[in-house]
Design a protein around this nucleic acid. Sequence first.
DNA 1: ATTATTCCTACTTTTTCAATAGGAATAACA
DNA 2: TGTTATTCCTATTGAAAAAGTAGGAATAAT
Lengths: 141, 141
Amino acid sequence: MKISTKGRYALRLMLDIAEQADGKPVSIREISSRQNISDKYLEQIISILNSAGFVRSIRGSQGGYVLKNEPDKYTVGMILRLTEGTLAPVPCVEEDAEACERLGECQTIVVWRKLDEAIRSVVDHITLADLMENGGDQYFI
Amino acid sequence: MKISTKGRYALRLMLDIAEQADGKPVSIREISSRQNISDKYLEQIISILNSAGFVRSIRGSQGGYVLKNEPDKYTVGMILRLTEGTLAPVPCVEEDAEACERLGECQTIVVWRKLDEAIRSVVDHITLADLMENGGDQYFI
DNA sequence: ATTATTCCTACTTTTTCAATAGGAATAACA
DNA sequence: TGTTATTCCTATTGAAAAAGTAGGAATAAT
C-alpha cells in the first residue's frame, strides 16, 4: 500500500519544472542534481510524462522540458495515475475491472469503495499550483 | 498502491469466523472451502491473527478458531495493519518514520499527509460488525 | 488407535521495483 | 564543421516483496 518512487519522483519532477517560471527549458541534469535522483531513472519517468503530453521536450544542447499547460491544470491524481497506474486499493474497484463473481456475496467491497473514494477525493483536488511555493490558492489546506 | 491478498484474506477470515455465531470453533478447512482460498496460505495468515490475540485457537480434532472479542471491537484498520504492515502511503508519514532530511524543502509532504489521513478515516471507522450481514449499526454507510 | 485439526518452518515461483547501461539522434554554438 | 549538451530508445540487472506450496510435528476428540 505504497506510492512507489516512480510516482513520487514524477510529482517532484513536474513541480520542479513548474517552478522554473522563466520559460527556459529545464534539463534532466539540473533536476536530478537539484532533487538528488538518478538522472537515468528520471529520464525514463519524464519520457512517460512526455508521451502523455504533460510536458514538451526540446532536444539538443540547451534543451530540456517545459510544462505543456499551467500548473493549475495538473492534479496530483493525473500525475500519479499516469506513472503508477490506477490508484484503486484493490483490483475489483479499478476503472475497467472485470466483474468479480463474488460480488453478490462480497462483504468487503464497501470498504474498498470507500477507500477508493477517499483516495480520489484527495489526489483529484490538489493541483501542482497548490503545491508551488508561491502559487495556488491555499484554500485546499 | 494495493492492499495485498494477505490483508484482504485476513479481513475475510475474521469476518467468516465472526459470522459463525454459534460459538463453535471454525476450522481453516471450512473457511478455505467457503472462501475459495488456499488453506495452506490461510494457515499462515491466521497464525498472525492468533499470535496477535485477535482469535483464539482450539487444537486437535473438532478444533478451529473463535474470535477473542466481539466483532465491533475490531476495526478494518487493525486487521489490515496487523497483516499488511503500516497503511501509510509513503515511508515518511509512517508512525515511526525517521526524520526526512528533505522535510524543510519538501513540497509534496502535504499530499501524503492528507492521503494518510483520508485512508485512516476510512479503515479506522469501519468494524467487523459493520460488515456483518445482520450486524452492526449501518450508520457508517 | 485413528482422525482431524493446529502449529511451525522452510522453500519456490512470479512479479514488481528501482535502477543501471550504452549508444543513437538532435540541435546549439564556437 | 566539429564539439558538446542534451533528449530518445531499448535492454539488462539486482533486490525485494508477494503469493503461495510443502512436509511433517504436536495435540486432542472420538
